[in-house]
């Protein structure tokens, strides 16, 4: 019983001591401890920036190779003028994020788009698939009932096509019959900017009813089904790559800012540290001198 209560008592006592120290000039030690910890934080953020810079260059190279996959699939939908069927209200939204934080607003941006959609009327027909733990943790509390699947372990390594294939498989075998849908992801624009963008998803039926499907030659439902499956996987792959690239670039800027802020803090702390040290020395000198003067 005593052991259980002791920690509370201890914290109270140490708090009292700290307050006393703050009133005296003994803050010198506290400042130097603070200084040391801020310096360590700066070291960490700096190295995180270096790591994400390296990862970013690779992600950007990968993204350039992955772009045709996504663009090709979107072109098909545009050329065939596929539209969402009106008689099928069920929709599927896929949130493309990753497991890792400390990268600015990439995850909140994607989740916010979905949250806004879920707040509109007709939300009961929308189901969400969260790719990456971050969007899940943002959406699960208020909109947990809309989530039908969660994919994680994303962001540690660059995404592969096999990852996209697994997610696509999960979507197709989930048993959820959606009429249309959207993949929400961060589209990479430059090192310093990205925007939330979306890719369309359609059911096979809505593609078969597309008005301009005839521009494509020799399509039967078998070919169409195979193509649909492939285009789902390749769009997911493209979205994963875009997301990974924006995430790394955003982490780079975030960590750069963090290092800069830590630098500012270090400057201020060194200044107060030196000032306090000087004050302590001066006070001690005064004490010694006045003591000596009193003895005479």
């Amino acid at each position: 019983m005593l052991g259980r209560f002791a920690p509370g008592v201890c914290t109270q006592v140490t708090m009292g001591v700290n307050q006393q120290q703050n009133r005296n000039m003994a803050t010198l030690k506290a400042i130097s401890m603070r200084l040391k910890s801020v310096k360590n934080i700066q070291k960490i953020t700096q190295s995180m920036k270096m790591v994400s810079a390296a990862k970013y260059t690779r992600a950007e190279r990968d993204l350039r190779a992955a772009r045709p996959y996504g663009e090709g699939a979107v072109q098909f939908y545009e050329k065939a003028e596929v539209t969402a069927p009106e008689d099928e209200p069920k929709q599927l939204y896929i949130a493309m994020t990753s497991d890792r934080g400390l990268c600015g607003a990439v995850h909140t941006g994607v989740s916010k788009v979905i949250r806004n959609r879920l707040m509109e009327p007709g939300a009961e027909n929308i189901k969400v698939i969260c790719v990456g733990d971050k969007s899940r943790s943002i959406l699960q509390r208020l909109y947990g009932k809309h989530i039908i699947s969660v994919a994680n372990e994303i962001g540690r390594l660059p995404p592969t096509f096999l990852d996209a294939a697994k997610i696509a498989n999960a979507i197709m075998t989930s048993g959820y019959d959606f009429g249309s849908g959207k993949i929400i992801f961060n589209k990479f624009k430059s090192v310093v900017s990205y925007t939330q963008s979306d890719l369309p998803l359609f059911s096979q039926k809505s593609i078969e009813n597309a008005p301009k499907l005839a521009v494509y030659d020799s399509l039967d439902s078998d070919v169409l089904q195979s193509y649909m499956e492939f285009s789902l996987a390749s769009m997911l792959f493209y979205a994963l790559k875009e997301g990974a690239c924006s995430e790394q670039s955003s982490r780079m800027t975030a960590m750069d800012n963090a290092s800069k802020n830590a630098g500012e803090m270090i400057e201020k702390l060194t200044l107060t540290f030196n000032r306090t040290r000087q004050a302590v020395i001066t006070r001690e000198l005064i004490e010694i001198i006045s003591g000596a003067a009193a003895l005479e």
């Binding site: 947990g144 989530i147 039908i148 699947s149 969660v150 994919a151 994680n152 372990e153 994303i154 540690r156 390594l157 592969t160 096509f161 096999l162 990852d163 294939a165 697994k166 997610i167 999960a170 989930s174």
Partner: peptide, 11 residues
Amino acid sequence: RDDSHVRITPW
């Protein structure tokens, strides 16, 4: 390029 680590949990 032949490996994948994604884990999928139905909800």
